[in-house]
Design a protein around this nucleic acid. Structure first.
Lengths: 207, 207
DNA sequence: ATATTTACAATCATTCATGTATGTTTGTAT
DNA sequence: ATACAAACATACATGAATGATTGTAAATAT
């Protein structure tokens, strides 16, 4: 049995780590505190000691994550960088590189962004979403391959990466619009975004 | 009491419409069939007559939605359009315009994309996500305003729209990467995407 | 050395959604 | 006119998760 402050802090961290895994696997609503406790090697009593309820475990997970982008953006605002756009570009890439190596951050982000309602009982629905997305991607890819054969695809892009980029930005656009309560003009932003993307995908002097 | 085939089909549709609303408001896991039944003006018995369980209601909602993009993409593949990239651009904008006017589609998309785990008990966690996103957006906007004052922002963009576009594509990138099980190189795609965006935001002959 | 608090474990009662089983009414076929 | 099945409503049993309470061993304060 553990008693010291350090041990208590350790079990707290273990509970949070277990919660991230369980939430990621079963979704937040699909995860019981009992499962989390088992994964962490404790009982529910331990969880209730450190946290009020499941919601507080979730907010603890969320507050644990410090968006690296924020620090970067704050720095840029304070120092008045001479090339803000270049800073955004560079910072974004660095953030992505850091994220790729941090599994825990990935899980917490997934829980936050996707909600992760991939319960066993709803797995077929989740599966349909995934396959539908995959089909969409395949068709997009074929279309862009046609453009490539007509030599109208810029050398920066491949058919695969271009299709992926379009898919990502489109779904991101929809998700942000819906999440924000439709607080910005969808068509307006979407038009600029897709137009910029497509323009960069055309061979520069082509048209 | 209703008995004819048409009446039965009507209640089925009413159940689906109610389910979309309840799912959208409470999240899938947070919605009981009882609540859906009440909203639809029937009892749970009616739902269990038309559907096996909650999962089947969800898949019915999902299969109801026909992605307009798919029809467009299929058409393009069959007909071999001479400008595939232009077709994608145009088609995307049209899809967005249609979506803006269809509340039901918006709800179903929100359920599918976001998962919508915004239960009452988790509302503070959801709130934190929203506010964190809003803060990120504000800082991004400020940064881009700085670029604008240095006259390095292309006329196509405003600080607001540019910040929104970056936010959308970044979150979309992360979401797709996580949802697809990390099936594509995040940094690679992200670098091309953000680079294309930033380039289109710079004043053309500036650098 | 003793008291008190910490950090849990174990138990219990309650709620709540689910699934199923059965009842009831009405359309429809014969 | 009667029989049967469709389209539900009602009632009940089950199980699972929750929150609360209680117990307890060790750490820490005095």
């Amino acid at each position: 049995m553990r008693r010291t402050k350090e041990d208590a802090a350790k079990t707290r961290e273990e509970v949070l780590a277990a919660a991230a895994e369980i939430f990621y696997e079963n979704g937040v609503s699909g995860s019981s505190l009992e499962k989390i406790a088992q994964r962490a090697g404790v009982t529910r009593g331990a969880i209730y000691w450190h946290f009020k309820d499941k919601a507080e475990v979730l907010t603890a997970l969320h507050s644990e994550i410090r968006l690296p982008q924020e620090a970067m953006v704050d720095y840029a605002i304070e120092h008045g960088h001479d090339d803000p756009l270049g800073l955004i570009e560079q910072g974004t890439i660095e953030v992505l590189q850091i994220l790729v190596d941090d599994e825990h951050q990935q899980r917490v982000f997934a829980i936050m962004i996707l909600g992760c309602e991939f319960t066993e009982h709803l797995s077929d629905a989740a599966q349909r979403i995934i396959t539908a997305n995959a089909e969409m991607f395949g068709k997009l890819q074929k279309l862009i391959e046609m453009a490539d054969e007509q030599s109208s695809l810029a050398p920066l892009w491949t058919a695969d990466s271009a299709a992926r980029a379009i898919q990502c930005s489109m779904n991101g656009l929809l998700a942000e619009w819906l999440r924000s309560g439709k607080s910005f003009p969808l068509v307006d932003i979407g038009e600029r975004l897709i137009r910029s993307l497509i323009r960069s995908m055309r061979d520069n002097e082509e048209r």
